[in-house]
């Protein structure tokens, strides 16, 4: 289990206790944070876009395919990640994220 701090699209802060076994996208989608996850975790739709705290970027780098998807997003930033590619089986204790604006 990891405790993750989430800032939603209205700027409100939440602390989530997330169990291992799924992806961060599924956890955020199921708790109605507004991410779509249209492609179901294939890193190709960009609809689960989040921003992560800069200090976590080195520990959680995006692979080539994910980086390419992010590049095509309107709201892409240097600290963008796709939450479907973040596995809750790893230690994410203290991770801080915010939900990116939807593309449409």
């Amino acid at each position: 289990m990891s405790r993750i701090n989430v800032i939603d699209r209205d700027g409100k802060k939440h602390q989530l206790k997330l169990e291992a076994g799924t992806s961060l996208m599924e956890a955020l989608r199921d708790q109605n944070f507004g991410v779509d996850g249209t492609c179901g975790g294939a890193a190709c739709c960009g609809s689960c876009h989040i921003f992560i705290e800069e200090s976590w970027l080195q520990k959680l780098p995006a692979d080539e395919i994910e980086a390419m998807t992010i590049e095509g997003l309107v709201h892409a930033e240097a600290n963008s990640r796709l939450s479907c590619q973040i596995d809750l089986n790893q230690d994410l204790e203290g991770l801080k994220i915010s939900i990116a604006p939807p593309e449409i």
Partner: peptide, 18 residues
């Protein structure tokens, strides 16, 4: 898919066509 994704981005739809 990689080629399509590079060419057919949400950015192209939202910024150019919307």
């Amino acid at each position: 898919r990689v080629i399509a994704q590079k060419a057919f981005t949400p950015k192209r739809v939202i910024e150019d066509v919307a």
